[in-house]
Design a protein around this nucleic acid. Structure first.
Lengths: 122, 122
DNA sequence: GGATTACGTAAGAGATTGCTTACATGGTAG
DNA sequence: CTACCATGTAAGCAATCTCTTACGTAATCC
């Protein structure tokens, strides 16, 4: 009953391969529902429901024109998701930099084994 | 029965507020399971299960020592998720400046946090 | 050895997800 | 108006998720 926060909705929407594929397909321009549904091994209602999830997550916009519904990308939520990940990684990398500093200084004195793999970015 | 792809697992893991909060908490350093569980209104087994989800998604690593299990961040999957979003955005719209502004306001003068994202699109 | 601690896992309840088929809505074309 | 078309929604079903309590395991402390 409780509506999940925006960020959770966005990540949940991105957690489905079909929905991610729809987003990639929309990069080339807006498409109708039937146009999209052609490419997937499921019914049109199923695609319509996926589109609802993407719309609720703020990742696409629907624009109904006559019988057809144009689906196009909407950026805000994707930016928010990217920002969350970027911030997560940024503060994390920052912390590792501090740790490197700390170890560099400490290495001159007592050799204290702190095993932590820095696998973030090459 | 079918194992979902890595990217779907990562986004699904990020779609839960408790799990995102655990990740943020681990930025300050590794923690034991009980140490983490203290901060959430649910049982320790629940937290343990959340940690399993994060571990399967490749977002954390568990290191059992005696009775205690050290949980620490593992970056690979987060990078993959960031890369997917970055590619999605890169081929679609020029919103990097907006994101840069957004992050700059949050971090206030820290060095470029998303530099790496710009070059991922292939 | 025996009690305790930290943790993981099994089992189950309740909600949610992802699909299906069937139907309702609203605009187009004759 | 009638026939049709693209679409959204309702109902239902199987699978999955998220929590619970109960139990099992391995290391520590007495």
């Amino acid at each position: 009953m409780v509506a999940p926060d925006q960020l959770s909705q966005t990540f949940a929407a991105l957690a489905d391969p079909t929905r991610r594929d729809i987003l990639m397909r929309l990069r080339d321009g807006s498409r109708t529902v039937s146009d999209l549904a052609e490419h997937y091994p499921m019914s049109r209602p199923a695609i319509s429901q996926h589109l609802t999830v993407l719309e609720n997550a703020g990742l696409i916009a629907r624009d109904r024109r006559a019988q057809w519904t144009d689906c196009s990308l909407a950026a805000a939520s994707l930016d928010e998701a990217a920002a969350w990940i970027a911030q997560q990684r940024a503060e994390w990398n920052e912390r590792f930099d501090l740790l490197d500093d700390y170890l560099a200084k400490r290495r001159l004195g007592a050799p204290e084994p702190i095993e932590r793999d820095r696998g973030v970015s090459g």
